[in-house]
């Protein structure tokens, strides 16, 4: 069917063509989208891991406790309004902060960054409060939820 053969298409045929073309186009796009999503690595899917970090009775009010989850140092702090868990990594340049019980503060020895027990910056260069983890308490056990992007396959 070359250009010359083409008679003016009737309205009916026009819609039929449109329906067919549109359908095939949409179907092809949908299918190709799936194929693309299959091939493109899935960066967005988050995996959450729950760790038990402490028993509530182990940490009296106002005290903190350091522990390692994987290689990440964490601090579990018992504040008036409940338990908080902070990353022990200074928000300034990534040194490890220390809990100073006597002074009731977190202290980063690298550039003298100082954080309050609630994680806020009270001195030094850190640009933002300590990173905090989501805390849930079940049966006197303190759990944190950590987002993990690293799995065996990514």
């Amino acid at each position: 069917m070359t250009e010359k053969d083409k008679r003016p298409t009737s309205r009916r045929e026009f819609f039929a063509n449109l329906f067919m073309g549109g359908g095939v186009f949409v179907a092809a796009i949908t299918f190709l989208r799936d194929v693309w999503m299959y091939l493109y690595p899935d960066l967005g899917r988050r995996r959450y891991t729950k760790y038990m970090v402490a028993k509530t009775r182990d940490i009296p009010l106002g005290k903190a406790r350091r522990l390692l989850v994987g290689r990440v140092p964490l601090y579990v702090v018992h504040l008036e309004d409940g338990f908080r868990v902070y990353s022990g990594i200074c928000t300034h340049l990534g040194c490890l902060v220390k809990w100073e019980e006597a002074k009731n503060r977190f202290y980063c020895p690298c550039h003298k960054g100082i954080f309050a027990p609630d994680g806020t910056v009270i001195g030094g260069p850190p640009p933002r409060p300590l990173d905090e983890y989501k805390v849930t308490i079940e049966n006197d056990l303190v759990f944190i939820t950590i987002e993990q992007r690293q799995g065996r396959w990514s």
Binding site: Y48, M52, R71
Partner: peptide, 9 residues
């Protein structure tokens, strides 16, 4: 995707 639960280091 439910949270996976793991244990300390």
């Amino acid at each position: 995707e439910a949270p996976e639960i793991e244990i300390t280091a």
